[in-house]
């Protein structure tokens, strides 16, 4: 270990893509569980999944257009993903109005539409490589460039600032929506802001971790930390720690063993979750024993 470690560090110093990937990874490791906590409490997991698939459609449309118009303008497919993702939240609201008792239908409809559009535009785009489409599904963090890192950094910074400013309102909303409204918080606006942030997070991270692994990064670290947390703040901080451990260890392992980063990180997150579950079980048994 001691002998091989420098080569990872060395590569970090010498190999630009790895450095970019790690910076982007550390941002995701921080922002994903932060957003994920609110997603879990506000029961938005399904929306997150839906938006990631719809955002994928946006990215594929973006690629299609950028190939088509390559000599006119240069479109970054991510922006198209962001646009679709935000648009998707409004379409969900619009569709909800049609179904009183089956509100989740609106999401299933959008999800199907997203997958269908993605398939269509991938097929329509000439010369798209399989490695690129695999990247969209499972992530291709090693292919991030300076621009992507910049977008990730700015997005992360904006989300942090938003969270810092509205932390109390967010906690209020999460704990008791009715009371939040009565106490004068603009719940509708805050809810909208949270959904838009979620949409942006999803589409910015889409290229890095892939549509299939986004939920893993948003949800799994938080599922582990709520089992052992005592307070709101502590639960979120613990989730961030778990998430960063998975990211950094995941980078190292996948570098050493030549494994896909996204999958490795997601599996490490699940491993931590399993460990926490085991810990909770053992602690329970221990407490019971010491009581009798």
């Amino acid at each position: 270990m001691i002998l091989t470690a420098p080569s990872f560090i060395e590569s970090l110093i010498n190999f630009e893509p790895l450095r970019y990937a790690l910076i982007a990874g550390i941002c995701i490791g921080f922002i994903a569980p932060l957003t994920g906590s609110v997603v879990i409490i506000r029961r938005l997991s399904f929306i997150a999944d839906t938006l990631s698939h719809f955002s994928l459609a946006g990215v594929t449309v973006g690629i299609f257009l950028s190939k088509l118009l390559s000599h006119v303008i240069n479109i970054n497919p991510i922006y198209m993903g962001v646009l679709f993702s935000i648009g998707g939240t409004f379409i969900i609201e619009l569709l909800r109005g049609f179904y009183k008792n089956y509100k989740e239908l609106s999401m299933t409809i959008l999800l199907s539409m997203g997958v269908a559009l993605s398939g269509l535009f991938i097929a329509l785009t000439p010369g798209i490589s399989t490695s690129y489409t695999t990247g969209l599904l499972f992530g291709s963090i090693m292919s991030v460039d300076k621009n992507d890192v910049l977008v990730t950094l700015i997005t992360s910074a904006l989300i942090l600032i938003f969270t810092a400013i509205f932390y109390k309102q967010i906690v209020s909303l999460c704990f008791d929506e009715t009371h939040a409204r009565i106490s004068g918080i603009n719940v509708r606006l805050l809810q909208l802001a949270i959904t838009v942030i979620l949409a942006v997070v999803i589409s910015v991270f889409l290229e890095l971790v892939g549509v299939l692994l986004i939920s893993a990064l948003l949800i799994v670290p938080v599922s582990a930390s709520i089992l052992i947390g005592n307070s709101f703040r502590q639960t979120i901080t613990t989730a961030i720690v778990f998430s960063e451990i998975s990211i950094i260890t995941g980078f190292y392992i996948s570098f050493k063993l030549v494994l896909p980063i996204g999958s490795t990180v997601a599996l490490l997150n699940i491993l931590i979750l399993a460990g926490v579950m085991l810990f909770v079980r053992i602690r329970k048994r221990y407490v019971k024993k010491s009581e009798t």
Partner: peptide, 21 residues
């Protein structure tokens, strides 16, 4: 009664400080 619809941990101090802007 307050409907707790989730298992997310929260303390008394967090409920009260968040209610005080």
């Amino acid at each position: 009664k307050v409907e707790f619809s989730y298992e997310f941990p929260i303390t008394v101090s967090e409920i009260l400080t968040s209610a005080y802007l």
